[in-house]
Design a protein around this nucleic acid. Structure first.
Lengths: 263, 263
DNA sequence: CAATCTTTGTGCACGCGTTCACAAAGACAT
DNA sequence: ATGTCTTTGTGAACGCGTGCACAAAGATTG
């Protein structure tokens, strides 16, 4: 396949596969750790191991950014940190607003990972008037009414939604109308946005359900051989759901006022 | 996914693609909503719209479960809810332990989505002795020393790690040694686990970085002609109209999700 | 300067996932 | 029954991502 031509403007931010973009932060984290230990260079093999990926994949990923390695030696850590940071747009400051300051919103506000990479919490917003002014992670919570002004005044283009599911779409619409073009959604709802707006979702419930599927499958395979607890993986996995300690009255963490919401 | 290369040619009459499994919870949620509104049947078109996917994809997904639809009519909501729940293993009770009761751990403990689907928080565990006994979401926090006993006594096979990155691998090792075979990791670290153990990670920092990448790309396209760099914490940002029809869009494959924790 | 060793960059093949498009299946009306 | 209409289930084509395997590039040694 002719690498150039109409299909791939190569090496420009355009031609980077989505799968590669998703891994760049992973490499960046590993590289940062190496940088802090003053390691000058790494081979694709070493870095791949640290990032938990295949070395060939890593090399191909880097090849989309350009040829930053030296054959026979490896990659210059500092240089690579810079290149990836630049490619990801982390050399600039990204103001972010978090909407919905419940348990989860508060956890996010306290998240150290924000500041450590180009992100800055510009504001915390909640619909509850009682929350207004109350400081969370050192930042006073502001009322939803201020949303549009905050976004405009700070040039915010990234919003985080940590509200209950019922409020998510409404909040999303307001964010978008105010100029936000990237949204990280923690509410268990499908958000509808106009073209040009990116949405990424984080759904705890879904992740657990996927794990449950595989867990069930494992348990099922075990039974295939016979009813014995025999298991290849090595660990003695006790009976699944064996103990059912009277579930009549769930002291439900359910009726609480979660920041995240029910599925 | 995690723990990659394990090929399971095993008993595969039930070869449901990973991508499909990842979407089943999405369908289940949409179906549950319909069920609560007492809607008897849905067409693939309607359900697909509600779940935010392509209808052909949805039909193919369901085809892996069997033929549960009626041509000319659609799918029976209740029946489908049951089938998917069973397939995902949600008809049984999954005891879960959450390790690391910081801001995030507390948010997770309060998460309503746990109890609403076959998951039950069996215990909250933290390394800080000062936390011991303190109730979070109505459940008393227990010390790390109890970890092994708790897992064995409750037949826990799913663990959630919400500790700082530095402690994650250690906690992971103990969980696995005690019999846990599925882990949901919120710590920004690559976990190493033996074969047979599933790990899914949620990394907030990574999700934000991916958004930043696309955000930068949008800004770059806008100012295509002149080399004007993107705006910093300036004021006017509303010019983000970017009508780029580019549909690279939305959440990519749900293989990975973001996490929380200090970087 | 030549030989050797190391590690990158990538052509290629393969498999998974997505999407189209349509025949088959059933509901419904006449 | 027969015909029409709706919607499923799926064959097939296509595109993306992954991983192998190797030639090319540079370091290193004698």
């Amino acid at each position: 396949m002719a690498t150039g031509r109409t299909h791939r403007p190569a090496t420009r931010s355009r031609g980077i596969p989505e799968a590669t973009v998703a891994r760049l932060p992973l490499y960046l984290r590993a590289l940062t750790a190496l940088s802090e230990r003053s390691v000058p260079t790494v081979s694709s093999e070493e870095l791949a191991a640290a990032a938990g990926v295949n070395s060939a994949k890593l090399r191909k990923d880097f090849s989309y950014l350009g040829s930053y390695g030296t054959r026979g030696v490896g990659y210059d850590v500092e240089y690579l940190v810079y290149q990836i940071s630049r490619e990801l747009g982390l050399t600039q400051d990204w103001p972010v607003v978090i909407v919905g300051i419940g348990n989860l919103g508060a956890a996010l506000a306290n998240y150290g990972g924000f500041a450590s990479r180009g992100f800055r919490v510009a504001a915390l917003i909640d619909a509850d008037p009682a929350m207004a002014g109350k400081p969370v992670a050192g930042i006073p919570v502001q009322h939803t009414d201020e949303l549009e002004a905050i976004i405009r005044d700070n040039g915010v283009s990234i919003g985080v939604i940590a509200t209950p599911a019922g409020a998510a779409q409404q909040v999303c619409d307001r964010l978008v109308a105010a100029g936000v073009t990237s949204i990280l959604n923690f509410a268990p709802t499908v958000l509808t946005v106009p073209d040009g707006v990116d949405v990424r979702k984080v759904d705890l419930s879904i992740e657990l359900q996927i794990l449950a599927f595989h867990e069930q499958r494992k348990a099922g395979e075990e039974a295939a051989a016979d009813g014995a607890p025999a298991q290849a993986a090595g660990t003695t996995n006790s009976a699944v759901a064996a103990k059912r300690q009277d579930s009549a009255t769930d002291q439900g963490p359910d009726g609480d006022v979660p920041a995240v919401m029910p599925a």
